[in-house]
Design a protein around this nucleic acid. Structure first.
Lengths: 153, 153
DNA sequence: AGATTTTAGGTAACATGTTAACTAAATGGA
DNA sequence: TCCATTTAGTTAACATGTTACCTAAAATCT
């Protein structure tokens, strides 16, 4: 057990604020890219999940995209209205519905994935591959640590 | 220049998502603490800034708390209605207004700061002091890097 | 001084975050 | 079988995030 001095944490050098600011920085160019397609960051995340892992029910999408169910419920409704996803009710469990990405939705993904990949690669280069991987490891360790129940695995 | 293979990034091992998830994890116990005081995470951040750095105008608070002006405008209005901050218009520049934390606001800070400090120390211990500092350094480097104009310094 | 530009702050409109409450369907006993 | 519990998803209400637009005051230029 390391010694804990309990010094008052300044709002500078605050982990939550640092996480927020770096995320803002990383997402800025991606948001700019998506605006041209009329997609929000969260809608993009949902489409990417559906494209990468195939049809899923809402609960599973929420877990993977790190969204709360009320938000996802609205997002799926909007995406369905715009023809980017299709809902199908499950025959075995009539509470559940499976969401599938539509051809139009997949087209949006295809249009933007190359540029998104390039943006991600830029940040990787900025830190260097080793430090980038180290950062991801530290974040994962922080997220999976003990103190609290995980909200979005 | 490191080689850039441009491999398709999975939504697993995505930096933006990792940043979001770890922030959720870190903030969860703090939000739980604040709920007892009827404060949101953002209101808490504004009060802490005012408590730590003294009276400031809205633009400066927004910069320090990493909030956009429209959000801050609403938050300050709400805090003022609840008597936690006081607005005073600047005599030199009549566009500007200086915000001061009230005794009631400072009381809320005092009530929660010890526990907040303990929560922060827990995460520091979880990673270990060196890895914790390393994480903060990497996040700072990511935020201050070249690609895009900084939104909240 | 007078016109233009910049800055501080606000409002509007829409999307998401967050908690609580709710419905319907499935599940697990007694 | 009947009842209690759990689970999938929705809705409501309020706060914030985000972009666009707006006003007034200051700063700048000529």
């Amino acid at each position: 057990m390391a010694r804990t001095k309990l010094q008052l944490p300044s709002t500078r050098r605050s982990l939550p604020i640092a996480l927020m600011r770096s995320r803002e920085k990383v997402m800025a160019p991606i948001r700019d890219m998506l605006r041209a397609s009329g997609l929000t960051e969260q809608q993009w995340r949902v489409l990417r999940i559906l494209s990468e892992f195939g049809p899923q029910d809402l609960t599973e999408i929420a877990r993977q995209a790190c969204l709360l169910m009320p938000s996802l419920s609205r997002i799926i409704r909007s995406l369905a209205q715009n023809g980017l996803v299709i809902r199908a009710s499950d025959t075995k469990d009539r509470r559940r519905q499976t969401v599938v990405i539509s051809p139009a939705g997949q087209h949006l993904i295809d249009d933007n994935l190359v540029q998104a990949t390039q943006i991600a690669a830029n940040y990787r280069n900025q830190l260097g591959a080793e430090r980038y991987e180290l950062l991801l490891d530290l974040l994962t360790e922080l997220e999976q640590g003990p103190p609290y129940p995980v909200k979005c695995a």
